Lab assay of single mutants.
Amino acid sequence: CFKERTRHLLREWYLQDPYPNPSKKRELAQATGLTPTQVGNWFKNRRQRDR
């Protein structure tokens, strides 16, 4: 489970761009302490949920 702060950051970025490029994923991974793969999976799952 991700911390509330991490989820908030991910949601904020998702609203700006639901399809982040690899450099954005790396930047967000550094900001949250997650791996770029975890960030990518979160975005993928969130896009699925929004369908």
Rank of each mutant, 00 (worst) to 15 (best):
Gln30Asp: 13
Leu10Tyr: 00
Gly33Phe: 00
Asp50Phe: 06
Pro18Thr: 01
Arg46Ala: 11
Thr35Ser: 12
Ala31Lys: 08
Lys25Asn: 07
Gln30Tyr: 08
Phe43Tyr: 00
Lys3Met: 11
Leu15Ser: 13
Phe2Val: 10
Phe2Lys: 15
Gln38Asn: 07
Trp42Arg: 03
Pro18Ser: 07
Pro20His: 04
Gln38Pro: 01
Glu27Gln: 03
Gln38Leu: 02
Gln30Met: 13
Arg26Gly: 09
Arg51Val: 06
Leu34Asp: 01
Tyr14Ala: 00
Gln48Met: 11
Leu10Ser: 01
Lys24Val: 11
Phe2His: 13
Lys3Gln: 08
Phe2Asp: 14
Glu27Met: 04
Leu10Pro: 03
Ser23His: 06
Glu4Ile: 09
Thr35Tyr: 00
Arg7Thr: 13
Arg7Val: 13
Arg51Thr: 06
Trp42Gln: 04
Gly40Leu: 05
Lys3Glu: 12
Leu28His: 01
Arg51Cys: 04
Ser23Trp: 06
Phe2Ile: 15
Asn41Asp: 13
Gly40Trp: 07
Phe43His: 02
Ser23Val: 09
Leu34His: 01
Thr35Met: 04
Asn41Ser: 09
Leu10Cys: 05
Arg46Gly: 01
Thr35Trp: 02
Lys44Tyr: 05
Phe43Lys: 01
Asp17Thr: 01
Thr35His: 03
Pro18Met: 09
Arg46Thr: 13
Arg49Ala: 09
Thr32Gly: 02
Trp13His: 13
Leu28Phe: 07
Pro20Val: 05
Glu12Phe: 07
Leu28Glu: 03
Thr37His: 13
Pro22Asn: 06
Pro18Cys: 09
Asn41Pro: 00
Asp17Phe: 02
Lys25Pro: 05
Asn45Phe: 04
Leu10Met: 05
Pro18Asn: 04
Ala31Met: 13
Asp17Tyr: 00
Leu9Met: 10
Arg5Ala: 08
Leu9Asp: 04
Gly40Val: 05
Lys44Pro: 00
Pro36Val: 11
Thr35Phe: 03
Trp42Cys: 00
Ala31Tyr: 08
Arg5Cys: 12
Thr32His: 02
His8Met: 15
Trp42His: 03
Arg5Thr: 15
Arg11Asn: 15
Arg5Ser: 15
His8Gly: 12
Arg51Tyr: 13
Pro36Met: 11
Trp42Val: 01
Lys44Phe: 07
Lys3Ile: 11
His8Cys: 13
Val39His: 03
Asn45Gly: 07
Asp17Cys: 03
Glu4Lys: 12
Leu28Tyr: 12
Arg46Glu: 14
Glu12Lys: 06
Ser23Arg: 02
Ala31His: 06
Pro36Lys: 09
Val39Trp: 01
Asn21Phe: 02
Trp42Phe: 05
Glu27Cys: 07
Phe43Cys: 01
Lys25Glu: 13
Arg26Trp: 07
Gly40Asn: 06
Leu28Ser: 00
Leu34Glu: 05
Arg51Gln: 13
Asn21Thr: 15
Phe2Ala: 12
Pro36Thr: 12
Arg7Ala: 14
Arg47Met: 03
Cys1Asp: 12
Asn45His: 12
Tyr19Gln: 08
Leu34Tyr: 06
Glu27His: 03
Asn21Asp: 15
Arg7Asn: 11
Ala31Glu: 11
Gln48Leu: 06
Tyr19Met: 09
Arg11Met: 13
Asp17Leu: 03
Gln30Asn: 08
Lys44Gly: 04
Asn21Pro: 06
His8Ala: 15
Pro22Met: 14
Trp42Gly: 02
Glu12Asp: 12
Asn41His: 08
Gly33Met: 06
Thr35Arg: 02
Ala29His: 01
Asn45Pro: 00
Cys1Ser: 14
Gln48Thr: 08
Leu34Ser: 04
Leu9Cys: 04
Phe2Glu: 14
Asp50Trp: 06
Gly33Arg: 04
Leu28Ile: 14
Lys25His: 13
Arg49Ser: 09
Asp50Val: 01
Phe2Thr: 15
Leu28Asn: 00
Gly33Thr: 04
Gln48Phe: 06
Lys44Thr: 08
Ala29Gln: 06
Leu15Val: 14
Glu12Ala: 07
Ser23Asp: 14
Lys3Asp: 14
Arg5Leu: 11
Leu34Gln: 04
Glu12Ile: 10
Arg11Val: 10
Glu4Pro: 04
Gly33Ala: 04
Phe43Asp: 03
Pro20Glu: 00
Arg26Ala: 15
Asp17Val: 01
Pro22Lys: 02
Lys3Arg: 12
Arg49Cys: 08
